[in-house]
Amino acid sequence: MDERIPDRARRGRGAVSNHRSSRFTALQRERTDDGWAGARSAQGACGDAADAPADDDALEGPSPQTVIGIDRSKSALAWNGSPDVPFDRSLNPYKGCEHGCVYCFARPTHAYLDLSPGLDFETRIFAKPDAPDLLRRELAKPGYRPATITLGANTDPYQPAERDHGISRALLAVLEEARHPVCIVTKGAAVTRDADILGRMAARNLARVMVSVTTLDRALCRTLEPRAPQPARRLRAVRALTDAGVPTGVLAAPMIPALNDWELERILEAAADHGADTAGYVLLRLPHEIKHLMEEWLDAHAPGKKDHVLSLIRQARDGALYDAGWGTRMKGTGAYADLLARRFRRAAKRHGLSADRWDLDTTQFTPPAKDPRQGALF
């Protein structure tokens, strides 16, 4: 008899489980009924319930709390050679992301920490307080050649932890000092806090912001990306940034077949109405553990749509749930993917939204002082 207990969604969390601890270890966790569930719920029946282990994966209970740790990486910049990505370097002030977007392609990176890409990814966050000093030293190296840095390529630089740690703002201060171009990708409405720095940089053609808007449906947003700002707040952030002179675009990402893909035109219209000048989209990507997390999410939140969603994904991924091929992993292939691409092009043209723009100025770059306390000679 199968004694596994099905997981249930937790309020304020995107992932349903922590089952797959890491693809690098054979140890996996499953919630099972050991016969003591009733005894544990009845305090005093067989001992004090306070003596029972407080394990969220074993017991029904409240949402796990967020824990912020410290990451002591030896470098700030992450480099990539992907031919279908418009940048070769990025900054990520945090590992993990409390926004909890169940579809986040960065979730599998937590496996490298021997943590789960599921609930661990959104509750075990690691801040990088040394990142601004590390960036300063890397930009000051004699052989460094400038190109646009993407802030937030992996996890969101304006997730809740930024309120207390301010690492993203400190990184922007270094980039402004060095007159180095930066493009920010975020769902965080808190990016408007840094409109002063971004406005000054934008006046020199050194800054751009891309705001991700996945859906305009508040109810869907609450379960799909539970701790990210509501869509209306993100759109207001687009308006605030453009009013501050910062060129801002919107990413309709990801488009999930039969779930939010019908909103594509509405998202682009809302983006244009709030001052966006650029738009892009990405078809849902399900690498590694995200396949299973997405299936669990569908079971919990949209069981009637699950088979249809997964069928359309397979149609766009050569029969699989994911295809990592260069040039196709972002948009997919086949009839469904082609139709989505045509819809995007027509809507973007109708609303005057250009394709993703990364044409920022690299000629103004000036290596910063290795030590911020060191004054300039001239």
Rank of each mutant, 00 (worst) to 15 (best):
A9H: 09
S116H: 09
K128P: 04
R163V: 11
E265S: 10
L340V: 15
D318A: 14
A335T: 11
Q28L: 04
G96Y: 11
V102H: 04
M1Y: 02
A232M: 03
K74P: 04
A316V: 07
S73L: 06
R266Y: 01
A337F: 09
Q65K: 15
D359V: 06
R13N: 07
G188F: 04
G166P: 05
D130I: 00
D318G: 14
I267N: 01
P181E: 05
P93I: 01
W326K: 09
D261W: 02
A127F: 03
D338R: 10
K306W: 14
A219F: 03
R107N: 10
T242N: 05
D57E: 15
A302M: 09
Q364I: 04
L286Y: 00
P117N: 05
D133V: 06
A39N: 15
T192H: 01
G375Y: 05
L284I: 10
R222H: 13
M1P: 00
Q230L: 11
H288T: 14
R285N: 07
L321G: 05
A337Y: 09
L241R: 03
T109V: 08
S354H: 15
L216P: 02
W36L: 15
E289H: 09
G275D: 04
A131T: 00
N205S: 12
E176T: 04
R236I: 02
L135A: 07
N154Y: 15
L377V: 10
G319D: 02
L298W: 12
P132F: 00
N205L: 05
R11D: 09
D299K: 12
Y112M: 08
P247T: 06
P93C: 03
M201N: 01
H301G: 10
I197V: 15
W297Y: 07
A207V: 00
G249I: 07
S21E: 08
H180N: 10
A300S: 13
Q65V: 14
C101T: 08
I68Q: 13
D114I: 03
I70H: 02
I70W: 03
K187T: 15
R317P: 15
G81H: 11
